[in-house]
Design a protein around this nucleic acid. Sequence first.
RNA 1: GGCGACGUAGCCAAGUGGACUAAGGCGGAGGUCUGCAAAACCUCUAUUCGGCGGUUCGAAUCCGCCCGUCGCCUCCA
Length: 457
Amino acid sequence: MKLYNTLSGQVEKFVPADANEVKMYVCGVTPYSATHVGHALSYVVFDTLRRYLEYKGYRVRHIQNFTDVDDKIIQRAQESGVSEDELVEEFIGDYFSAMDALNIQRAAEYPRATREIPRIIDAIAGLIDRGHAYPTAGDVYFRVTSKDDYGKLSHRTLDSMIAGARIQVDENKEHPMDFVLWKGAKPGEPSWESPWGPGRPGWHIECTAMSLEYLGEQLDIHGGGQDLVFPHHENEIAQSECYTGAKPFSRYWMHNGLLQLGSDKMSKSLGNLVSVVEALERYSPDAMRLYFLSSHYRSPLAYSDEGAAAIERSLDRIRHALTPSNGSGPQVNPSSHAARFATAMDDDLNTPQAVAALFDLARDINRGRDAGQRIDEGQATLRELGGVLGLTFAERASSDTELAAAPFIDLLVSVRSDLRAARQFALADQIRDGLAEQGVALEDSAQGTQWQYQSPD
RNA sequence: GGCGACGUAGCCAAGUGGACUAAGGCGGAGGUCUGCAAAACCUCUAUUCGGCGGUUCGAAUCCGCCCGUCGCCUCCA
């Protein structure tokens, strides 16, 4: 299997340090607002990576953090008149329900910054001891000039960063690019005791401390959105390699392209967010996953209702391929599609090609059914490969209202069947049209009439 | 200003030197089936890959320039 490594800027053969267990760390969210579809894209990508690795026989130890103390959390909590803890608990709950709905497998552990303070303090103290960090005026900064390959992930030099000229000059810093490891407490902020006075951890150090605690000194895969490459991941590398001396901190760095809304990046600062809850009111979890996986994970993807609706329609054909059949002819052979699927996934997770293989398999199954062939082997493969992409092929869950209406729809369909048998087609069509207006689609076949609620589009 | 990515059919999107007379999906046209539909299936829907040059026996794929879009450099998946 090959994966693109941001560190080298190249597609590389994937070889984990331990042939049996892949150590994967994925940056989690800062829980202060609703989980949005951009988050969903990122976690679907890494969930799919994990599922494929497991499909190939690896054991995957997946760790993902929650940044549960930061400026935005403090600010939002104060605005809302709730405690930081309450705010964080609310949005962690929102996060998990969104991820569960999207069939994203849970990580082995979800460490939180506030519960790893001793570990974080140890790391900061160690960095100071080794000359890579310095305390000043209640804060502690990382000394970027102490790491000669600082910038190797984002492929920049310190000089080019300074040329950006968007750095706030801080009198206490030795170098403008030095970043904070420990923030001295301001009045009213949550804080913890430390050798440098009360305060809280900077953003980057938590990931260093947690990955060390839960995965050891070196990771196989570190993932996140492309917006984390700099400064977050660059700084993680600096901290971790300077603290442990083990290089590389992570063997592979993987970054997903960001979801765009219209022509802009979907982001908290722009406020152009679509929450996962809103999206799932309109589209099935399978459609959301398939939408994200129908373009390559490193490309930016524009989110649109039209696009999601098109994907939802395409799923119908795959779902149809999974309906039972009583064919008795030779089996439809899925092996070439399975091979194509694996080849695609092995090639830096080329999910668009893998999805194409799924659609081709579905067509073969449907064709085989029409020809009276047996299709259960093909269906088993389709379910298995779809499962690697995290697809469940479940029908859309019905609302309570829809469930309550079902007996009446059954009755109407039954009456219509009698009318058709009596060749009263005008009346039968009237019922079909009327149900269609109510969002109920009918399909007649030799086995009788099936009906279902239309997915919105 | 610095760094980087991208521009493929009406739309989304793979392919990055020869099997490309360019995958897959949506949409569209015609057909099979059907009482008629729907669904499914079949056929068709880019002689061409932003533009112009160049390298090569050969380029969507490599190089140069130009045009356009976007991201990062600041909180962010």
